[in-house]
Design a protein around this nucleic acid. Structure first.
Length: 569
RNA sequence: GGCGAGGUAGCUCAGCUGGUUAGAGCACACGACUCAUAAUCGUGGGGUCGGGGGUUCAAGUCCCCCCCUCGCCA
């Protein structure tokens, strides 16, 4: 039994995430956490909302609410949706927690002690009317390059040229529309990442078992151009962790907060503190290598856009502190999921969002499709045809129907209890051999976080049951040799329990239904398959479960396709 | 423009350090079965592995050039 710390990239607070966000971090992290728990390992699985920054402030203003209140509400919404998808977080925290405030300030102070913070005075755009400094992308104006009149301060959406806000002609605030903008001096703290370049580089180079997606992105940032750059870790904002605090080793940072990319990863640790406070558990044995965390395996899940912060920024914080914090052991990253020939788009309402998905179908449908099509080697694409075909074929026909045909046949011929009689022969031995081989492959892929391949093996396990049943043909055998038919069905009923156990990480809802139908709470992993196939003894009562997965009709598919197409630009 | 990832059957994808007739699922065709959610099982057709050169006894798998897609950066 090992100890595994698992974190999913923390979703931003402003709004509900789409299926692409889900499959890029939370869902595969949940799959892994559930699998490791099922194998008897000790798991701490953490996620949280990322709440600070300008977008949250503006979203709150738009909703007409104080930002703290807005975040509290949205956190509850996201937590509820996560529950709907059966995401098994041990704690779903908040980056705005007191724990994270304290820890973020402590890290900043410590990094300063280690000589890794420097102060920089720079010029930033200030909007007099809004009474605030504005991030580059919240300033619009006419592009000096192509004349496009809605170019953003960081980049022109029309000609894609990278811009500086001061380059814009007739710049205005996108918050208020005001043109009363001026450059003002402001002081910020910079994290001296460049000092850590060699240590990071050595560390990344040593990780030859990481996904190439992870290491290639990390190496690019380390070596591109002038190499790893220092980054500002403060902003002129109100909503966030104050950069000026008691014991701060700098002055004059009043009215400024730490930038989200600095405090958000620290929430991984603070989240464990939140969890400990709520449960009385010990968080240090997960995060402090001097307090027992040296035997923890720490795995992070994220979309590729988050890789730089997890391979460079956060490790600078951890390593730079020169304190015994647990450093990540494995970073599993994902490409993007596209939607029907384009990208998911929040602003255009294009694609399916997490709350909408749950209104259409139970979580298992989405979990299965998303995980079995996870964008591991390249970007993947969601289409309704593919979703309908996969769900109907894999879940309804192959698995659901198997459960149905076995339990209903037994009920009609032997009653709703595991029947007696008959013996195993060559067919059963062949099945056991097949199952053992498939199960070992499945376990290997799950341990390696090869999500798609694991799903293929799981499906193969289901198919093996149908093959066996088809060949054994108990509906024929029962006419001449009822006892032998009973032996076949006895095995098949036990197979249902085994499927429930091994399928649970992917489809926890259906797994629970199968287990309930078999009237047992025996979730033990079928390490010994032969024994597992007799776990439900002769005479054990069961009941025919409700249809596990109804099919998605062509009409539904067409309707949904239309409904989620969004407003094309 | 630079960098990275891809371009393998109609569709979605496997193919490790080069080595017998290039694989799987879906879709399609035919057959079997009739317990089951018109479900299941079997068989089969279908690919000059983006294009062109080269290395090698042997290349989807290595090298060079080109084309296309996606992403990151300038």
């Amino acid at each position: 039994m090992a100890r595994h710390l698992i974190t999913s990239a923390i979703p931003y607070i402003n709004g509900i995430k789409h299926l692409g966000n889900l499959v890029g971090s939370q869902l595969p992290a949940d799959l892994y956490a559930r699998y490791l728990r099922a194998r008897g390992h000790e798991v701490l699985f953490l996620c949280a909302t990322d709440e600070h920054g300008t977008p949250a402030e503006l979203a709150a203003a738009k909703a007409g609410k104080p930002v703290a209140e807005y975040c509290t509400e949205m956190h509850a919404v996201q937590a509820e949706i996560a529950k709907g998808f059966a995401l098994s977080f041990d704690h779903f925290g908040r980056s705005s927690s007191p724990q994270n405030h304290a820890l973020t300030q402590a890290f900043a102070a410590r990094l300063a002690e280690q000589g890794l913070i420097r102060e920089v005075v720079e010029q930033q755009m200030y909007s007099v009317a809004d009474g605030r400094f504005l991030p580059d992308r919240y300033i619009e104006g006419t592009c000096p390059n192509c004349g496009f009149d809605s170019a953003r301060g960081d980049q022109c959406d029309n000609c894609t040229k990278q811009l500086d806000p001061v380059d814009l002609i007739n710049p205005r605030s996108t918050v208020s529309g005001s043109t009363d903008l001026e450059l003002r001096e402001t002081k910020h703290l910079y994290l001296r990442q460049s000092q850590m370049k060699q240590r990071l580089s050595d560390w990344i180079e040593s990780k030859d078992d990481w996904p190439v997606l992870t290491t290639s992105i990390a190496k690019k940032w380390l070596n591109d151009g002038d190499g790893l750059q220092d980054r500002g870790i403060t902003r002129d904002l109100k909503w966030g962790v104050p950069a000026q605090f008691d014991g701060a080793p700098w002055e004059g940072m009043e009215g400024k907060v730490f930038y989200v990319w600095f405090d958000a990863p620290i929430e991984y640790i603070a989240c464990a503190q939140e969890w400990a406070e709520g449960t009385g558990a010990d968080w240090e044995r997960w995060w402090r290598t001097d307090k027992g965390a040296d035997d923890v395996t720490y795995t992070q899940f994220m979309g590729k856009d988050n890789v730089p912060f997890h391979t460079l920024g956060f490790p600078v914080t951890i390593l730079g502190s020169n304190q015994p914090w647990k450093l990540v052991d494995y970073i599993k990253s994902f490409n993007y999921l596209n939607y029907d020939g384009g990208q998911f788009s929040t602003s255009r309402g294009r694609g399916v969002f997490m709350d909408q998905a749950l209104e259409l179908l139970p979580a298992d449908y989405w979990r299965w499709w998303l995980l079995s099509h996870a964008p591991e080697s390249a970007d993947a694409e969601f289409t309704w045809e593919n979703f309908q075909q996969s769900a109907n074929k894999d879940l309804a026909d192959v698995l659901g129907n198997l459960v149905s045909r076995v339990t209903k046949f037994c009920r009609s011929k032997f009653g709703e209890a595991v029947p007696e009689g008959g013996t195993w022969g060559a067919a059963e031995e062949a099945l056991i051999a097949e199952l053992e081989s498939r199960l070992h492959a499945y376990e290997g892929y799950m341990e390696a976080m090869e999500v798609r391949k694991a799903s293929i093996e799981l499906r193969s396990l289901w198919v093996a049951g149908n093959e066996y049943l088809q060949a054994a043909a108990p509906w024929t055998v029962v006419k001449t040799d009822p006892e032998q038919a009973a032996a076949v069905i006895r095995l098949a009923l036990n197979l249902i329990r085994i499927y429930a156990v091994v399928s649970k990480p992917f489809i926890p809802g259906a797994a629970a239904s199968m287990m309930t139908g078999m009237k047992t709470g025996d979730w033990s992993w079928p390490t010994d398959l032969r024994a597992a196939l007799t776990a439900l003894p002769v005479g054990h009562a069961f009941e025919v479960p409700e249809v596990l997965f109804r099919k998605i009709t062509d009409d539904e598919r067409a309707e949904w396709q239309e409904r989620f197409a969004g407003t094309r630009a």
